[in-house]
Nucleic acid binder design. Sequence first.
DNA 1: TGGCGTTTGAAACATACGTTTTAAACGCTA
DNA 2: TAGCGTTTAAAACGTATGTTTCAAACGCCA
Lengths: 215, 215
Amino acid sequence: MRPIKPIKPVKLDAKERILDVAEELFANASFASVSVRAVTAQADVNLSAVNYYFGSKQGLFHAVYVRRATLMNHERLHLLHMASEMAKASGEDVSLRDLINAILTPPIFWLYDEKQGYSVYIRFLARSYLEDANNLKDVLSQEVDVFDRFVPYFKKIKPNLTKEDIYWRIHFVMGVMHHTINHLHRIGLLSHNVCNGGDREEARDRMVDFCCNGF
Amino acid sequence: MRPIKPIKPVKLDAKERILDVAEELFANASFASVSVRAVTAQADVNLSAVNYYFGSKQGLFHAVYVRRATLMNHERLHLLHMASEMAKASGEDVSLRDLINAILTPPIFWLYDEKQGYSVYIRFLARSYLEDANNLKDVLSQEVDVFDRFVPYFKKIKPNLTKEDIYWRIHFVMGVMHHTINHLHRIGLLSHNVCNGGDREEARDRMVDFCCNGF
DNA sequence: TGGCGTTTGAAACATACGTTTTAAACGCTA
DNA sequence: TAGCGTTTAAAACGTATGTTTCAAACGCCA
């Protein structure tokens, strides 16, 4: 039933298409409930392609993760760096708001980014936190490294807090973020459609406000 | 180390044992990755029992939920009621801390309750938030009803907040809670074992502090 | 004790899954 | 064009799954 076949097929790489589809499906359902067949069918690719390119279903999952993992944490560190430079120039400390901003802005802005598929990735990432920890050891360790870079700044602003306090509060900030990401659509139900969560600046600012005060 | 064994074999109902095991397995892994066979084997029950008692695997999942669902929300409303009575007696408003407390204390205390299996249920509940929304329509609506009872109290304490503000902040409080429940073990990794998250009062108080300030 | 509704036991069924296999088709370089 | 490594195609394999079946065992009440 195909129409006239074009000379050059305007298709992305099969590998890339598989990653896109897998990202989307894994973002919306658990690892076990997403079948390789569903991925390959939706990516318009042969069933064996997944095992060919990625070795296994697990390999595919991991590949989806690593494709964009470091980029987001680099964005965080970049925001931290910029805030640090600005503060240095004006002779002040980095503000608490800057720190929270640097942690929350990349994921929440990605969440609303429809074009490049980052939105899907963020939901994928948030969901994958609940999968078996084996798949995600390197996910964790990378994020831990990033937050370690933030701790001294928190400590400088709030010298009376212990490291324990700071870790707990970073943990809560992550909680606000993950829950917002996973259940953003639910704010409508909770509020009887008073809130809609459609504006990324609003969501970001509300989260940042809440977390700054919480800290 | 049980004392003398009574004459009647002290086995729980098969039905109850299935629910206990399913609760535990569903708390630790996704719906699709938990097999009926794993449940029945661990519950020391025949394979067909699940379909006999609950009709289907989905039915079992739903039964696990409904077994303790209303109780927790009743505890929340009870705490709200008590705080309201105390406040009335002293002629004051219910404090913000009382409200946050009433929302967070039941789940977080259940989380640390080893004896009655409530701990497992709380993790089951938090995880089930990420499963397909179809299974959980009544979960949501019940929780929404409970929080609606809280809104007027928030409004009275913070009259300058809009309803929208309040719903967003309740949403964030839930985020802190769910993330803490799902990733409590992770606070150790994040903090390089500075924090351990072993004390329910500490966890509760830290969450309440954070959320009170955030509000 | 006898009878009957309820519960359990063991096996089988049909299906969906991840993975493997084998050969054909493709794309590039010599 | 010939040759060869890479990619795709289609089918099959073995296994695990949810569910059904049907007879045996049980528990209770007359």
